[in-house]
């Protein structure tokens, strides 16, 4: 197990470098540059800029420099946010995105697993149909539609909650973004839980548990839940990759100072150090979370050994 973890941790390094290289390649292949804005720049100034940022050097030197900075974990200065280093931006935006993402996923797990379990236990009942139709709705409504609709209802019509902004992370400001973000995960988790539970409920070992004389509640909690939740555990890995896309939208809809918002702005401004920094950072985070999910998988299912 320990060897597996170490191996996976080591593999993270080349994988992040691959992603970073890909991103860097895309940035460089695209015509245009961060300084070619609205107005034409005189040749002399352009030459100065190119020299200042080392753009006149051969590509492999620049690539090497970039890689060096990634490996050191110091991504340099942002080009669009003057006076701020990429690392500063990362550390100031991370709390926002992490709070959003974690709260949304916890909420999604709680609601999704409960709903899915109830739906599975009462298969083909009104409960089942209602919750599954609701889950399907959650999968089908894009979150940038859901978010504004929630704002329209709770902020602009009922005046219960603030429509946007971080507000220092106060609960009132968090409710709508977290709800918007978690909707699709709730839906997915509910569906996964339901199908996982149904499969286990039909299994022979649950029949054995019933034959033992355990009550239905005991059967569910001791014998069904653990196996039924496996699909949710394996979904949690890819879910984190999705979660990033989700936070980008939610941060934009609610004007939150998170990683995703900065990422999009950096892309539009061609802020190379910031893009590279965020891509590298998120890749590491996703890979580590994937590893955690795999460890959790082995912890839940004794048949899996690494």
């Amino acid at each position: 197990m320990l060897r597996f973890i170490i191996r996976r941790l080591i593999v993270i390094v080349p994988m992040v470098l691959i992603v970073v290289t890909l991103t860097w390649g895309l940035i460089r292949l695209a015509p245009g540059n961060f300084y070619t804005g609205e107005k034409r720049i005189p040749k002399a100034i352009e030459k100065n800029i190119r020299e200042k940022y080392g753009l006149n050097r051969p590509w492999y030197v620049q690539y090497g420099k970039m890689m060096g900075s990634v490996l050191r974990g110091d991504f340099g200065m942002s080009l669009t946010y003057p006076g701020q280093s990429v690392n500063q931006i990362l550390w100031s935006t991370l709390p926002v995105s992490a709070t959003l993402g974690l709260l949304a996923y916890i909420l999604a797990l709680a609601v999704g697993v409960t709903t899915g379990t109830i739906a599975a236990l009462k298969q083909n009942s009104k409960w089942d149909y209602a919750s599954m139709a609701f889950a399907m709705l959650g999968i089908s409504i894009p979150n940038f539609v859901l978010g504004p609709l929630l704002v329209l209802l709770f902020s602009l019509t009922l005046f219960w909650l603030p429509p946007a902004l971080w507000g220092g992370g106060s609960p009132a400001n968090l409710i709508l973004p977290v709800l918007t973000l978690s909707a699709i995960y709730m839906a997915f988790i509910a569906r996964l839980t339901r199908s996982g539970m149904l499969e286990v409920l039909r299994s022979d070992y649950v029949r054995t548990a019933r034959a033992k004389g355990l009550s239905e509640v005991q059967v569910v909690f001791r014998h069904v839940l653990r196996g039924g939740i496996m699909p949710v555990v394996s979904f949690s890995g890819p879910a984190l990759a999705f979660l990033i896309a989700g936070t980008v939208v939610v941060e934009r809809v609610f004007a939150l100072p998170g990683l995703g918002n900065y990422f999009i702005n950096a892309n539009f401004a061609r802020d190379e150090p910031l893009i590279i920094g965020i891509v590298a950072f998120i890749s590491i985070a996703v890979l580590i979370f994937n590893l955690l999910v795999d460890i959790g998988y082995a912890y839940i299912d004794p048949r899996i050994r690494y």
Partner: peptide, 10 residues
């Protein structure tokens, strides 16, 4: 079927 009648997680 004894292969499937015992809870694999327990």
């Amino acid at each position: 079927d004894p292969m499937t009648s015992l809870n694999p997680f327990m």
